[in-house]
């Protein structure tokens, strides 16, 4: 059986890849993808903790399910806002989101 550490390492790598992407990508859609990567890393964490450490209950699985659903709702709203920006600026790069600052 695969040790729990390997799963957690995969999740941690995904998490930090997501954070790195969030900080470095210039397109808002790529930023959104990075955030999905972070959310999926947490889902893996929940499922793994539930399966390998506390197999008696299903709390972790349910948490992953809910978090998948909620992150889908969030992406829907985020993309709607980006379409709105695109309609007015014809560009969704975050370099263009600079009208409001300091």
């Amino acid at each position: 059986m695969i040790q729990i550490e390997y799963f957690l390492i995969v999740a941690a790598v995904m998490m930090f890849a997501g954070i790195f992407g969030f900080l470095t990508r210039r397109s808002t859609l790529a930023i959104l993808l990075s955030i999905e990567l972070m959310l999926n890393a947490t889902d893996i964490n929940f499922a793994v903790f539930n399966r390998l450490m506390y197999p008696a209950g299903h709390e972790g699985y349910f948490f992953s399910l809910f978090s998948i659903a909620i992150s889908a709702a969030e992406s829907a709203i985020a993309i709607a806002i980006m379409i709105n920006i695109y309609r007015q600026m014809k560009d969704i790069s975050i370099d263009k989101l600079q009208k409001l600052k300091w």
Partner: peptide, 14 residues
């Protein structure tokens, strides 16, 4: 308004 919304939702998700 849209720019403010985009900034809020990206950081809220993060």
């Amino acid at each position: 308004s849209a720019e403010a919304g985009a900034k809020y939702i990206l950081l809220a998700l993060f």
